[in-house]
């Protein structure tokens, strides 16, 4: 692994929706301090924020590992949620399994995974029903 890499770890607490986004906010701050371009920072922040929201509303929280190098930023989100039944459907804009309460909060419109895909260069999802989901995303610094 590159010597000049920064590794960050966050626990995502699902008990309070109002704090969802704290980890992405913290990573955004670190990337700013490290001098990444506004475009890279925004792409990482939005992808991570959407994923963090998903972890809170669907999966009872989880853990996020972020590795930052000058060439790329990799974010690995692991949850212990119910898993995704149909990934192909979940990737379609507008498809959602979120309940009314989540929609009232401004999310759950079926844009989460498509937004993550939109803003990242690589995205891999591995999911197992009743066990959890890992969303592994990378943003390349061009």
């Amino acid at each position: 692994m590159a010597e000049n890499s920064v590794k960050l770890h966050y626990n995502v607490d699902a008990s309070d929706f109002t704090v969802a986004g704290q980890a992405s906010g913290a990573v955004k701050k670190v990337l700013k301090q490290l001098g990444f371009s506004a475009d890279v920072i925004r792409r990482v922040a939005v992808a991570m924020y959407e994923c963090e929201i998903n972890m809170v509303i669907h999966a009872d929280g989880g853990e996020i590992d972020v590795e930052i190098t000058p060439e790329k930023i990799r974010m690995i989100h692991k949850d212990r949620g119910p898993g995704i039944k149909d990934i192909e459907k979940a990737m379609q804009e507008g498809y959602s399994t979120a309940d009314e309460k989540v929609r009232e909060l401004g999310f759950g419109a079926g844009m989460g995974l498509p937004n993550m895909k939109r803003y990242t260069d690589e995205m891999n999802i591995s999911t197992e029903l009743e066990k959890g989901t890992v969303v592994d995303m990378t943003v390349l610094v061009k």
């Binding site: 929706f17 986004g21 925004r42 401004g106």
Partner: peptide, 17 residues
């Protein structure tokens, strides 16, 4: 501009500068 009033509005705004 939004009719939604919660902390996630501010966080969303922050993510998008």
């Amino acid at each position: 501009l939004t009719g939604l009033v919660n902390g996630q509005v501010i966080r969303t705004a922050e993510m998008m500068d």
